[in-house]
């Protein structure tokens, strides 16, 4: 097991807004050098031997802080982690030295089959033990702390016995991993599971949060239910901005990523979303600076 003082100190990523890097925007980014806090890439998209993805990422890495986000490690699978995949992640970590590395509280492989989705796990003592064992293995192999992301869920397990925020707090305490708070996932899961998203944020173990994700969701209605889908194909919803403000009031400024993976917008539109997050981060920083000043005056 690895021990780390805090999720934040080793990050190397500024408390600013970042953007998920898309091939559609490689050229504009290199030409314009936009003022973006950091870029994040999906690790699996950079597991080819060579070619333009690596060439562009090399240049962008020289100019910006980078965060590496895995989507296929299947940390929540009952079976063992895929050592070959872990080796590929290790190679990418060594090559690009990202400031953050994150993965999901989810599973996507069963036996030799890969499901291209983030599938849910029941929150039981057994799952807790398995997930913690896998995170220990990841952190030991990569020789770094990882962040674990809260999931979007569409089904609920009757056998779940631990609330999600408590489950994540237990994992962070046992493994020393940090947490990635995906605020859109909070809205999606809260809607689909029928709990209060703001209360979820209020009970989130914010001391472990090393990054926040923001994204758009989609509505699907049927069978007398209005479900939310984690679609990543539209702007961040107003309600999610509201939850984000609530989260920032607890965490203070924290690296915040705009994820827009489908129906990828123009670069200026995506940058505009990042600037909205940047404005919230500035407000959060000002609030943080005011608080101790007032405390001094009162003393």
């Amino acid at each position: 097991m690895l021990h780390h003082a805090s999720a934040r100190c080793a990050a190397g990523i500024p408390d600013r807004a970042g953007v998920g890097l898309k091939p559609e925007h490689y050229r504009e980014i290199l030409e314009q050098n936009p003022d973006v806090g950091y870029f994040e890439v999906h690790a699996e998209n950079y597991m080819g031997a060579g070619g333009p993805p690596h060439a562009y990422l090399e240049v962008i890495r020289k100019r910006y802080p980078l965060s590496l986000h895995g989507v296929g490690l299947s940390i929540g699978a009952a079976g063992p982690l895929d050592r070959a995949h872990l080796s590929r992640l290790k190679a990418l970590n060594e090559r690009y030295e990202p400031g953050l590395f994150s993965e999901h509280l989810a599973w996507s492989t069963h036996e030799s089959e890969f499901f291209n989705d983030l599938l849910p796990v029941p929150y039981t003592q057994e799952t807790l033990d398995i997930v913690c064992r896998h995170i220990d293995e990841v952190q030991t192999t990569l020789r770094r702390q990882m962040l674990l992301e809260n999931p979007s869920v569409y089904v609920l397990f009757e056998e779940s016995e631990i609330p999600e925020t408590e489950f994540l707090a237990l994992i962070a305490a046992r493994t020393g991993c940090g947490l990635l708070l995906d605020v859109n996932n909070v809205e999606v899961s809260a809607n689909n599971a029928g709990y209060d998203a703001a209360k979820y944020i209020d009970s989130f173990p914010v001391e472990h949060v090393g990054e926040i994700h923001l994204a758009g969701n989609a509505v699907a209605e049927g069978e007398g239910e209005r479900l939310l889908i984690d679609a990543h194909g539209s702007p961040v919803e107003d309600s999610v901005w509201g939850l984000y403000r609530g989260a920032l009031s607890r965490t203070g400024p924290v690296p915040t990523l705009i994820e827009w993976d489908n129906d990828v917008p123009s670069w200026p539109r995506l940058l505009g979303e990042a600037q909205k997050a940047e404005a919230e981060l500035s407000r959060s920083a000002r609030q943080r600076n005011r608080t101790p000043a007032r405390a001094t005056a009162l003393a």
């Binding site: 291209n116 989705d117 569409y154 056998e159 689909n192 069978e223 479900l227």
Partner: peptide, 22 residues
């Protein structure tokens, strides 16, 4: 089995989101 105490049709539809995503 064990995917929440919702109406069967709702559970089917919710599971279908994963089927469709995959």
């Amino acid at each position: 089995a064990g995917l929440g105490g919702r109406r069967a049709a709702q559970a089917q539809r919710r599971f279908a989101i994963y089927r469709n995503n995959v």
